[in-house]
């Protein structure tokens, strides 16, 4: 166990952690604004990344425009889902489990659609900062990973500021905590919910676009990201985007440290066991508020 190896594990852990955090934040945002657990958050990542790939390679847009296009795609799909399905179900007072099933069904549909329309190939995107790497003590981290970490932290802080400082953010929180009360103060509850899904879609797509240069995107990526993102979000208390970031980082670091500290064969066993233990010891989540049912 050399210092170099530990440092490499830390690099990988933090990078993966921010990836999980990005997915988790989107999940958190959607739950915060609508109390829906979005089992297709990972698919937003795939939508964003695939759209960017297509815009870049098939229609020849410049990279920045393609990224914007991908992000917009995520936002639009989010809006569509809210308007077409969630709104209708909310009017019928559907249960939380029904919403979960909705998003599971959508996730299956989207993953199968990517396979059917785009194929089984994996795709990459050009990394920010090129193929360059930073080497410290023989441990390697790509420039793009550093960008990813920076953007991830920035997004977390921006999201927190959004919810606590802007009118829309505060309105979204109010609408989800008490719809009737919010309506009496003139907040358009339905529109706030749409914005929530737009935000979730945007975050998911952005996460996917940022992650693709490192790990590539294919039709199977969605489910894996969703599971890790869910873990990150719940660890963080489910309604706190900063919590999702901390949850994601915790998960990423526990995974890498388990690999070098114990063995790569038992990485999942260790990581998920630690997850369970953290949840039992901290029943409100790592940064969650007191008393709320599951966040």
């Amino acid at each position: 166990m050399t210092l170099s190896l530990v440092l490499q594990a830390l690099f990988a852990g933090v990078t993966n952690g921010i990836v999980y955090a990005l997915v988790g934040m989107g999940l958190s945002a959607i739950f915060k604004g609508s109390r829906v657990i979005n089992a297709m958050q990972g698919e937003f990542a795939v939508i964003g990344a695939m759209t960017t790939v297509l815009l870049l390679t098939k229609t020849g847009w410049p990279y920045a425009a393609a990224i914007a296009g991908g992000a917009v795609a995520g936002a639009l799909v989010g809006a569509f889902i809210e308007v077409a399905f969630v709104r209708y179900m909310a009017k019928k007072n559907a249960s939380e489990d029904s919403f979960l099933l909705l998003t599971i069904g959508l996730a299956l549909t989207l993953s199968a659609s990517v396979l059917f329309f785009i194929g089984r190939d994996g795709h990459l995107l050009p990394p920010l900062g090129g193929e360059g790497v930073l080497i410290i003590l023989d441990a390697v981290i790509q420039f793009h990973a550093l960008w990813l970490i920076a953007i991830g932290i920035g997004a977390t802080l921006a999201l927190r500021a959004f919810y606590h400082r802007t009118t829309i953010g505060l309105s979204m929180m109010a609408a989800s905590i008490d719809a009737d009360g919010a309506a009496t103060t003139g907040i358009n509850v339905a529109r706030m919910r749409t914005f929530t899904f737009v935000l979730g879609g945007l975050l998911g797509a952005l996460g996917g676009i940022l992650v693709t240069p490192l790990i590539g995107v294919d039709y199977q990526l969605g489910l894996n990201l969703t599971l890790k993102g869910f873990a990150a979000a719940v660890l963080g208390g489910l309604t706190n985007p900063l919590g999702a970031a901390v949850g994601g980082l915790t998960l990423g670091l526990v995974e890498s440290l388990a690999i070098i500290g114990i063995s790569s064969s038992y990485k999942d066993v260790v990581a998920f066991s630690v997850l369970i233990i953290i949840m039992i010891l901290m029943p409100q989540g790592i940064l969650g508020r007191a008393g709320r049912r599951g966040g």
């Binding site: 490499q8 990988a12 990078t15 490192l214 790990i215 990201l225 890498s256 070098i260 790569s264 990485k267």
Partner: peptide
């Protein structure tokens, strides 16, 4: 070893 569907295997590769 890494799990099927792993999104990253850097640490294992480092070992």
């Amino acid at each position: 070893k890494f799990e099927i569907g792993a999104t990253d295997t850097t640490t294992q590769a480092a070992k």
